[in-house]
Structure formats: structure tokens, C-alpha cells
Amino acid sequence: MGDFWGTMAEAISLILQWDTDLIGIIALSLRVTLTAVAIACVIGLPLGAVVGAFRIPGRTLVTVVLNALMGLPPVVVGLIVYLMLSASGPLGPLQLLYTPTAMIIAQTILVTPIVAALTKQVVEDLHGEYAEQFASLGVGRIDRVLALLWDARYSLLTVALAGFGRAVAEVGAVLIVGGNINHVTRVMTTTIALETSKGNLQLALALGIVLLVLAFCVNAAVMAVRASAVRAAYV
């Protein structure tokens, strides 16, 4: 028990020293995660909205696939992206393996089905409420999708949050495609795994604390926005 509190104290001390290596790791983690979530939202929000709002051919199949992909094993995604980006893979000439871009690609693949599947559910519920009014007004398909996404924006914040949670905590895929190279592709989760294996528990715990605080802050911010929207009856 004494060891735990001692390690915790050293970890907090490391954070308070504002170590440049630590800052670099945190910054790269946030850059990779936020970029992946943003790309996943650009793809997943309209995809989910279209599947949720319209009786398109193959809708059930798309829904099943999206739901199944929500549980994609990160190491499998990492392996597939690795094979695609490796020198002998189809995207080898791009030379993206072991770069932050490769990590963003892997995280985007992991997060997009989550965003799309949850968006589909949110939009489907809202469309059930709006459908007759839209039909009566003669709202076109594109306007319909945009209106649904806009009116569901506070619920979709929670969807994006779910994607952020998945991406920021992910370790398997980014480890495979990023390689955990110091000052290049080393992010919080991969560093925690590495430092723990090396017995450097202070740094691992320091990063763990930062990760928890970040997750808490992002959740709190989204919940605050959503609560204000609920009070204003926009949800």
C-alpha cells in the first residue's frame, strides 16, 4: 500500500514538473484522437443519418454491419491497417506506417462505426417524430438530413463523446501501426503499456492520471452543454 502512495506521489510530482516529454506525449495523443474523432464524425454522422432517416435498399444489412463493427477488436484493425500500409501492401508507397497518420487511420476505422451506429439510432428516433411534418412541408432529402443532424446536435455530442472515449483509450491498433516510437508515435496509452513493462510505474501512473483527468474534463464539458440544452428544451 505504501508503495502505491509513493508511486502516486512521484507521478503527481512528474505531472507538476510539466515535463516536456510528458507534454509531447499528451499533445500527440490528443492530436491523433481528436483528428480521428473529427474524421469519424464527418463520415459517420451523415452515414448514420441517412441510414436512420431513409428506407434505403440494404438498410438492415448496413445496420447489422455497423452494429457488428462497433465491437471491432483494435488489434485486428491494427493488423489490417499494418498490412495495407506496409511496404508490400497496396498503400505501401505512401510510406505512412509508423507515423501519426497511420494511427489516425486506425482510430478512424475503429470510431466511425460507433459514431454511425449511434447516430442512426438518434436520428431514427427523431425522424419518427418529424417524418410527417417534413413530408407535409415537402422537405427534400438533403435538407432532411441536415435538419435532423442539427436538431439532434446535443444528443450527437454524446455520440462523439463515445467515439472519443473509444479512441483515447485505444492501445492495440496504434501500437501496431504506430510502433510506439519515442517523439514520433508515442501516445499516452502505448507509453503506459511500455513503461509498466519496464517497471517505470511513476511515468505510467502519471500518464494514467492525465488520461483520466482528460476523459473526465471532456465528459463534464459535454454533459454541461447537454444539460443546458435540456433546460432550454432543445433535446
Partner: peptide
């Protein structure tokens, strides 16, 4: 498009009163 309908339970978009009117007119 020359018709309009009001439902028994009015369907209000999750927007302001003004934005509800603006949306209907922009669609038209």
C-alpha cells in the same frame, strides 16, 4: 406544395419559434 397540414399534436422542431417558421419558409 399548394397544401399544408396541421396535426393534432403539433410537431415542433427543436428550435426557437422563429427558427421553426424560418425553416418552413426556407423549405418552400
Amino acid at each position: 406544395r399548394a397544401q399544408a397540414m396541421v396535426f393534432q399534436r403539433p410537431v415542433m422542431l427543436r428550435r426557437s419559434v422563429l427558427a421553426n417558421l424560418r425553416f418552413a419558409l426556407s423549405v418552400r
